[in-house]
């Protein structure tokens, strides 16, 4: 059995001390071990941003792609080899600005990929511009007078797009975060996990303390039922999206792979490339 240490490598992250992304890295390593995975059966695909570097900080197969495209790459990997556990990850700019088209379609497509967004409500790598997750009035280098666009409520969006696993967590809460990621990995279908992961350098508003004050844990809400989509939506609206825990899960809906005609349990990568002569003759005759 692999332990979380087996998912560590010796690359030193270039994140600022105190960055929320450290916890996400640790949580992925712990969740992977706890889910019984081995490093060579796991692929972490990431986008571009401070957060996007995460695929290089975990001992597993890692693919650090281009800005906003971690999801299509990850879905391609999963379709090629469904025996792998595939994790996609990146920042809120990566997933909800440049990559939003892919995010919403990955949610509705429901390929079995676990998508972890490190949401710091700002662009870290490019040194502090606004993000689709920045609140109205939020001052950044690109919105010196305060943002005049409203923040996207990602969890509500994921619910309405037909998400089958919608969850949120917080970097300070390593235990909950690890458990949510593990559940996401085990979920058969697409899982979206939005993690409040503070940028200590550029976001002086949405700090660890700010989150601690404003977050409601779903486990503290009596009778909360994550299989009830309407309750999930109402709760999100009531708390302005600031809840953590498993918001919604639909275990009934089959994953994309389960619905693909002729798709085998064994990875597509193991299917033969060669075509038999009689098959070829048949295909040729169809054009005669």
């Amino acid at each position: 059995m692999a332990t979380f240490k087996d998912f560590r490598n010796n690359v030193k992250p270039n994140w600022c001390p105190g960055c929320g992304d450290f916890s996400v890295q640790a949580a992925i390593q712990r969740a992977a071990a706890s889910a019984g995975l081995t490093p060579e059966k796991m692929a972490v695909v990431s986008g571009i941003g401070c957060s996007g570097r995460i695929s290089g900080y975990i001992n597993s197969y890692g693919f650090h792609g281009i800005h906003g495209r971690s999801l299509p790459i990850a879905q391609g990997v999963k379709m090629a080899n469904r025996e792998l556990t595939v994790i996609a990850s990146g920042g809120d700019g990566d997933g909800f600005a440049i990559g939003m088209g892919h995010t919403i379609h990955a949610i509705r497509r429901n390929i079995d990929v676990t998508y972890i967004v490190m949401d710091n409500q700002i662009y870290g790598l490019t040194k502090g511009q606004t993000s689709p997750r920045s609140d109205m009035g939020f001052k950044t280098k690109s919105t010196p007078g305060g943002s005049i666009e409203s923040a996207l409520n990602v969890m509500e969006m994921a619910l309405s797009a037909g998400g089958t696993f919608v969850a949120q967590s917080f970097s300070s809460d390593l235990k909950e975060l690890t458990s949510i990621i593990e559940q996401g990995i085990e979920h058969k279908g697409f899982s979206l996990i939005n993690v409040f992961s503070p940028c200590v350098t550029f976001n002086k508003v949405n700090t660890y303390d700010w989150f601690k004050e404003n977050i409601t844990k779903l486990s503290s809400i009596e009778g909360y039922d994550p299989t009830d989509r309407a309750m999930a939506m109402n709760t999100l609206m009531k708390h302005n999206g600031l809840v953590t825990g498993l918001i919604y899960q639909n275990k009934e809906k089959p994953s994309y792979e389960q619905l693909v005609e002729g798709f085998k349990d064994e990875g597509l990568v193991k299917q033969p490339l060669e075509m038999k002569k009689d098959k070829f003759d048949q295909l040729v005759s169809e054009f005669m």
């Binding site: 693919f63 495209r69 790459i73 879905q75 391609g76 090629a80 792998l84 892919h102 379609h105 693909v260």
Partner: peptide, 25 residues
Amino acid sequence: GGTVIQTEDEIAACTMAIGANYAGV
């Protein structure tokens, strides 16, 4: 055993093909 996915755009199509080729298909 294979399939076609109609993606949301050509950026997705191209990067998805890269992902699959990376994984050996």
